[in-house]
Simulated scan of single mutants.
Amino acid sequence: MEQDLIVGVHSIVHAIRNPKRTTVELIACEEGLEKLNKMGGLKKHELDGLNIKLVSSHKVQELAKELYAKEDFQYSRVPSGVLLVSSAKSISETKPLFDAIDAGEEVKILCLDGVTDVHNAGAIMRTAAFYNVSHIVFAVKNNFNIGPSMARIASGALEYIEIVKCNSLPKFLSALIKRGVTPVGLTEHTDDNEIGEIAGIKCLVLGAEDRGLSHASVRLLEKKIRLEPIGKIESLNVSVAAAIAMEKVFS
């Protein structure tokens, strides 16, 4: 069985409460269990039936190192003395999303075009969950990997958003457009800073940290917006820009 390593109190609590996940093992020291309760609001009865390995705080880190190496993740100290080993987050193909659109279901789609930094990706995912985004779509190549660091930064958002991987984001966008969806791209290469009215399904496309949207994606997008600075600093971190753009598109 494929496994996810989840760290961060809130991320662990949301994963435990997710009926689609199976807890393999909860590795924790006494203080870690206490933090799940006091910081994360996890009730004692929610731990009933879970496979809990109660060890010293030092042993938590030793076991984490072994698990990180086994799963090919770069180890960093596990916060709060608690680590969850869970069944893997399911990654969807594009067909179920297209089927949902064709069936008239209400979805909110966020496309990430070349976002590679897990810290930015995790922060974007957390904001997306705040705005009730249903699907995050990204291409197989040149994008972030889902792992412990991203799970911690996403603060539980992984449990509430469908993750969709496609072979080509431009081809995915083309398929959306054929279905009557008008994706909105965030880019500096436009003079338009007003979103206006968007009928039907809402879809926001965000580009990479350094180069923004790819040319292949930009060529397809009929609707593009920019964030107009009103101060001396003219650029934003992609996760901050994403939050402002989501307020415009999804609120």
Rank of each mutant, 00 (worst) to 15 (best):
G147M: 03
V218D: 15
E30V: 15
E105W: 06
S235T: 02
I146Y: 11
R17G: 09
V60E: 05
T182F: 03
L63Q: 01
A241Y: 10
F144E: 10
I109A: 13
M1E: 01
G40K: 12
E197Q: 10
V181D: 00
D99L: 07
L221W: 05
M150E: 09
K165C: 14
L220G: 02
L63G: 10
S214K: 11
V205K: 07
E105V: 03
L36Q: 11
Q61A: 07
V164K: 01
S251N: 08
G40F: 14
R21A: 12
K65S: 05
Q74I: 15
S168D: 05
L204H: 12
E66S: 13
S56E: 04
S155Y: 07
S57K: 04
V82M: 10
I101W: 07
A64L: 11
G32W: 06
F172M: 08
N143W: 02
A121V: 12
K53Y: 09
K141H: 05
I6R: 06
E34H: 13
V164N: 03
E234A: 06
S90Q: 14
K38L: 15
R211H: 12
P229Q: 05
K65I: 08
L169W: 06
M39W: 01
E66A: 14
H45R: 00
N120A: 03
S56W: 15
L42E: 07
I163M: 05
V7P: 03
L63M: 05
